[in-house]
Amino acid sequence: MNRRAVWPLARCVIIEAVRRKDLWVVAILGLIIMLFAGALGFFGMRGLEAFAKDLGVSVLGLFSTILAVLISARQIPEEMNRRTLCPLLARPISRFDLLLGKYCGAVLATWLAFAMLAAATAIGLLAFGVPFEPIFAQYLLLKMLGLAAVCAASFALSLFTTPSAAATFGMLLAFGSGMLSRAFVLAGQSCPSGTRWFYGLIESLVPQFSLFDIGGRAAGGWPLVPVSVVGALTVYCTMIVGAMLCLSWLRFRRRAL
């Protein structure tokens, strides 16, 4: 692995995200968050802090996930369509270096957009008089891990399907993994105990992005998530990203350009 190649490639993704005005979209979304906050204010403020927090984390989670999927699902297919891969791979870098650089760029661009949205949300919440609590810092940290995992899944999907299909599947997976997990839990609970291992296996194979979302706890003023859980989620995120990058590489390493 050529670590020297990762940053130039990642930087290129970020520059492109800025110049193609992806972040304008983020700014508009930020404005929508503010308008939502304003709408809540219009209907009365007393006791609404919890809803403001809930709305803030929900909208932040929604928009940042959409951006994560869209940014990462287009990276490699767009390179293929624009025929920009050949000059890159003519340089002394491996195909894995290229994938890693592109993935890191997608994650950094997503995190940048997330930071902008989070700032807009924080301003909106402060306008409501909601103080920034420690659990929000934890929420942001875990959400960033979750976004990295979502990026990895969308990135891998884009190598197996068309960009549009990758974006659609990526969103389904990102937003539906929690629902899917609950369906499997219900099905597992209602089936004989001897066959539960099957549902357990599926559960462990489908990435559980909802685990990285502690928005409910943040909105409800729950206590902080234990550090050991944050550590376990970091390991889980690393496993998802590693698995997805491996899948991507297996698909990409022999692909004719």
């Binding site: 020297r4 190649a5 940053w7 130039p8 490639l9 930087r11 890159l88 340089r91 002394p92």
Partner: peptide, 9 residues
Amino acid sequence: LTLYGELQG
């Protein structure tokens, strides 16, 4: 060129 140069080392 800077990008390709950096990749070239």
